[in-house]
Design a binder for these strands. Structure first.
Lengths: 229, 229
DNA sequence: CGCAGCACCATGATATACGATTTCGGATAC
DNA sequence: GTATCCGAAATCGTATATCATGGTGCTGCG
């Protein structure tokens, strides 16, 4: 139950984590009506902290709120996933480029280790762990980004994607193989201290390709034109 | 007083706008202690709506909040401004590139009209209106961005910059001249249907140059290495 | 003279109560 | 049979009251 019942947290925060988690595990599905009173009852608190929690979730875009009506879990259609993914491709690539010169040899080898575990995982493919490793790999790369604001935005967008759905790999397992290869290429570029624009280009392409794979899988007809610079 | 006293808004929202506005006009300066009770008193409401308002502002990063202690207006040092600006340079450039093919001839001429008013404003330079026009110009360009998520992020970042300080032009008036010229160049590229990466490059460069101007003005020593692809 | 401990005060956190708004269903009229 | 209106129930919105927490200043002891 994670931190939803941590006694050191304020009740608002407990409610916040509680609702967020139930949304994450799809117990509150998109469109679900969130009734303050009921949730307060479940958590054995009054509605005031629940209201605050929902306001926070609203700010994050997880729920929509209408005055005197109530809160619903946000509707997320495929397009939102695509758009988020594309935004991430742009921001993350820039973040990785900004981080490239700050990555130590140790960072690189840690990233490579993760990528090797991903390679190993290709045989008996398990989308969930693969996705987790993928995120870890990417995190290592942009973690050293010298621009904390950008880091914040990238992390926020990753989190958002996490809420939208599990991952592309669940839907397009074939993409995993390529993905691992592109990871290694990216590492090589960074090690070679390739020009930053090359690194950014590679990183953006890597993510765009993931998105393309997803699009081709779900919407073979309406391909979204991507930036490829 | 704008919308801070609109009777149709909920009290939380009134409080929200009220506080935000006072921060914007520097009446609540960074570090200022926001006391719930006092604000509630000023607005003639109880503390509950004020709490919610502050939670929202916290989510936006305008105020920091510490449990059982209270809220302060966020400290914003120069670096935050730079980081935000850089993030914006990356996102907005991508957004403009994505919008480029969707801009009508009318959009272009509106943008050009704005830019001409900026040119006219160069003679008796007035940072505030110039900044407003600048924002309008940029808005026209990325408004047609096909990716609404990216649009959201770009707008949010513009708003954030607005809170941090008035604008670069206040500090580096000399930048205005170049800026206007770069605007025209950008318009020409879009009209010519230049490759998207060219447009993105130009847009990013335009913003980076603004940031550079600011940096050179404030921190001649520690130049932040920017992405130039 | 300085530091530690305690008590009081300011402020935030939450609960409970009441008022306001909306929504939905049923009844009535056409 | 259908449309419209009215009312009750559900739910949100806010205020007031009480409890918990953290800060600050005073006092007493070393």
């Amino acid at each position: 139950m994670s931190q939803a019942d941590d006694k050191t947290l304020s009740k608002s925060q407990r409610a916040y984590h509680y609702i967020k988690e139930r949304i994450a595990r799809q117990e509150f599905t998109p469109g679900y009506r969130l009734v303050l009173g009921s949730i307060a009852g479940e958590l054995d608190m009054s509605v005031v902290p629940v209201r605050e929690a929902i306001r926070q979730l609203e700010a994050e875009g997880l729920v929509t709120f209408e005055r005197n009506v109530g809160a619903h879990v946000s509707m997320v259609d495929d397009s939102q996933y695509r758009f988020s993914m594309q935004a991430l491709s742009v921001m993350e690539a820039a973040a990785i480029a900004l981080a490239a010169r700050h990555l130590s040899a140790d960072d690189i080898s840690r990233a490579r280790a993760v990528n090797e575990r991903m390679t190993a995982g290709l045989v008996d493919f398990e989308p969930h762990t693969f996705t987790a490793l993928n995120r870890e790999f990417h995190s290592i790369l942009f973690a050293q980004c010298a621009n904390p604001r950008m880091l914040e935005l990238v992390n926020a967008e990753w989190a958002r994607l996490g809420h939208l759905r599990y991952s592309t790999f669940t839907f397009v397992p074939g993409r995993a193989q390529e993905s691992v290869q592109e990871h290694e290429n990216l590492l090589l570029l960074i090690e070679a201290e390739a020009p930053l624009y090359e690194i950014e280009k590679a990183a953006r392409h890597h993510r765009s390709a993931t998105l393309d794979a997803f699009l081709i899988h779900e919407h073979p007809d309406e391909a979204l034109r991507l930036l490829s610079f």
